[in-house]
Design a protein around this nucleic acid. Structure first.
Lengths: 220, 220
DNA sequence: TCCTCCCTCCCCCATTCGGGATAAGCCTGT
DNA sequence: ACAGGCTTATCCCGAATGGGGGAGGGAGGA
């Protein structure tokens, strides 16, 4: 398998080259920008071209469509970080054999490359939902709720949770809401139970971490 | 030379790891996000930490300042693609030993790393004009710290603050640290005084909001 | 209508927390 | 040798918290 690497980050290119050759994949050339990659692909005629998306001179997408326009049929794989639907769809529409993310295991990449030269089309598993949505026509919009633990909280409890997350004591919360502190205590107990924690600190941290109570922090 | 790699792109990480080890540089660990990198740096105490700037969970800059805040003095190098003045300046102000671009030759990286463990500060040559301009305009102000309220905290207090921010009670913290709960109580009092708050909840929220205590959360 | 859920309030209790003072041991820098 | 900071520990006390129970009113659905 003869591979051409096109990526503007020299370090990434060199590292990937070493990795691939360790797995018995021959890297017959590397290029640091899209234009150079396009030229080398035409001259070297590799089996597979690994393309980055964002590059100077020519983007990966432009290289892809350029190679197809001049009639070259080699396997072309986009290897990028973009998980945007647009990029994925355009890449596949232009006849790429694969769309992979840089955030993948080297061994998986090797496997994917072997699949590709065998004629398969490989898309990063993280993007299959995107792919599915596109196929479904973009209209489904299936509520990615994921069931946060906050769902079970009643409106009043949510309100109290947010005040609690500001560090207010039960008494202060009670005064702010115009109810008795005993009631606040009861709500807090319900919150702790529903969030499955055993202290107000944990509840507060939970709320803050998920950015649930949108307070303006005085942070840097 | 023992090196820790922190980058969210697995492929880049693996490739770089292979490259460095070929040049006789020992990679003692790799991390896929800032939070993980921070924790590994604290545990493994590498000679050099190679950090990406943009990462999930915690940015490279946050990892850098976090490590400095907890008192770790190892060499830290930002290895990124950003050539923005702000990123460069902030990185150096936070006590990094280097700022390098991913678009560099592997051999240059190795040379740079050797210089860094020798105590030098290395900046990508492409960025020296930026550096010069900053110096001309800013007259090199001697205030890298920006005075976060956490500066006043002692190492022990920082440690306790992080446990506190996980919702642990004084007694549990005491057991985890092997000290008496009375002592923990005293530390907590000092923390509250120095952070100018009046409840552990406020202190915990403060720590979490500034992403100071890096616990593994199940958050989305 | 009955039933459930939410919000409100009350009682009890043990534990924890916040704040005060005091001090010994250790290390560092003067 | 000394001062100062950090860590450790002790004592006390009032307030806050966490957990248990019971109870009434109102809104909404079966």
């Amino acid at each position: 398998m003869r591979v051409l690497l096109v990526d503007d980050h020299t370090l990434f290119r060199s590292g990937l080259e070493t990795l691939l050759e360790r797995h018995g994949i021959e890297v017959i050339g590397t290029a640091g920008n899209g234009r150079e990659g396009f030229m080398m692909a035409r001259e070297l005629l590799p089996d597979v071209v690994l393309l980055d998306m964002r590059m100077p001179e020519m983007s990966g997408l432009e290289v892809l469509s350029g190679l197809r326009t001049v009639g070259l049929k080699m396997f072309i794989v986009m290897l990028t970080t973009s998980n945007e639907e647009k990029d994925l769809v355009e890449t596949l529409r232009n006849g790429a054999s694969g769309y992979l993310l840089k955030d993948m295991e080297p061994s998986e990449l090797v496997t994917a490359l072997r699949d590709i030269v065998a004629g398969k089309t490989v898309v990063a598993p993280e993007l299959t939902p995107v792919l599915a949505r596109v196929v479904q026509g973009d209209t489904v919009e299936e509520e990615p709720h994921e069931s946060t633990p906050f769902d079970e909280l009643t409106p009043r409890e949510l309100e109290i949770l947010c005040l609690l997350a500001e560090g207010q004591s039960n008494k202060v919360i009670a005064r702010n809401l115009g109810i008795s502190d005993g009631t606040v205590k009861l709500h807090v107990k319900a919150i702790l139970r529903k969030l499955d924690v055993h202290s107000r600190v944990e509840a507060a941290v939970m709320a803050v971490e998920r950015n649930f109570c949108h307070k303006e922090s005085s942070g840097s």
